[in-house]
Design a protein around this nucleic acid. Structure first.
Lengths: 210, 210
DNA sequence: TTCGCTAGTGACCCGCCGGTCACTTAATCA
DNA sequence: TGATTAAGTGACCGGCGGGTCACTAGCGAA
């Protein structure tokens, strides 16, 4: 199998091509199992070329996270802005969106998986993810809940001190898909429905509340 | 640094000592990062001795999971049996127990982390874990919820089709402690309170329900 | 058209670690 | 107390893959 394609110089296009290839390779093999040579092959370059643009395997993974993580948050933040309906409907919308963007999206789920697996190796990156996703999302949910309480739609509960709790079932779903999918396929639609039912009813004010 | 201790033959004690040492080593370094030689050192034996009892690194990890996972389930199952109080109180009890045994227990949290990280490598083991923990816990929760519905304590909701959803926040807490603890320490007590509040209120029947 | 710069190449190097095995020695028993 | 057995040892092997670098060649400038 001789080398077919003529060598080309494409300084601009390489980094993103390598990143995309790396994302695939990481998805399939995890961080430790991913081979630089395989990434290079997927990107249609030689091993050495990868090292022109990124100097270590870690650096490649970091670049992927930075490129793929922030967009999700911005997308969801866009929904929240100037939402006209009820807070409950807004929460439903956000949770549903989160499932499609994080739980069901293979690439981003793999990023999360690698982050969990390698959080010691990537301490700085875990902090970045925490700051970019967790803190931002929490603040957003917190505001939604507070507004719901103010409007009399939600009851006042300890959840306002730990708003991220309401995303728990989504995290479980993501972990399930990472680990147990081969043992039992997750019925994501049914899971999402149960999740939304639980949190909407768990938050809403009823005539039983004083 | 010469070799101090006299060689000893302790066929019975070795396996559990090696397992305990391996648990520590895996906890600190993950599966890929764990070195057999380090496990041997922690267990106070030579590398070769480890291989007398276990023939691969995988086998050591499998033995750990099998030894440590099932007891938790049995322990929790014991609580459920013949519970005299309300279903809501029983759920609280179980969830609280789950936090102390899985979320806050470093060893078992590490087992879960490794299982998530290496689920492809340990497909059989993931199935074992799924069968031993997920399926069992789900059935248990399902029965509790159904009984609550029958007694008129809980409302009838889609959660009965995905009962594991209610453990979602605990999974999130575990993932948090695996990955983001250095960025922001989790307030487990407050988190647990919010979790319980959410699910108890999410399930219970109110006079608003038809 | 030639020249110089630098993107691109891939054979090679090297450290690491899982796993082996010829050897050592503790324990047992006649 | 010498012989026998098997637990225990650790130097060594092999492959694997991250990272290097001397070399090749595409491309813009002069």
């Amino acid at each position: 199998m001789a080398n077919e394609k003529p060598r080309q110089r494409r300084k601009e296009a390489r980094p993103s091509e390598i990143l995309q290839a790396a994302l695939l390779e990481f998805s399939e093999n995890g961080f430790a199992g991913a081979k630089i040579e395989a990434i290079a092959a997927r990107a249609g370059v030689a091993k050495g070329t990868v090292y022109i643009y990124y100097s270590t395997k870690e650096e490649i993974f970091e670049a992927i996270v930075r490129a793929k993580v922030s967009p999700v948050f911005n997308l969801i933040a866009g929904i929240v802005k100037l939402w006209p309906g009820s807070q409950a409907t807004l929460l439903k919308k956000i949770i549903t969106r989160f499932y499609s963007e994080m739980v069901e999206n293979d690439e981003r789920r793999m990023i999360l998986k690698t982050l969990i697996s390698e959080s010691d190796r990537f301490e700085e990156l875990a902090k970045f993810y925490h700051k970019e996703i967790i803190v931002g999302a929490r603040k957003m949910i917190s505001q939604i809940i507070q507004k719901g309480i103010d409007k009399g739609e939600f009851r006042d509960s300890p959840i306002k001190y730990e708003p991220a709790v309401i995303m728990g079932p989504a995290m479980f779903a993501a972990v399930w898909k990472m680990s147990f999918e081969k043992a039992e396929k997750l019925n994501t639609k049914r899971w999402l429905e149960a999740h939304i039912d639980l949190i909407v009813n768990g938050l809403r004010k009823t005539s039983d509340d004083k």
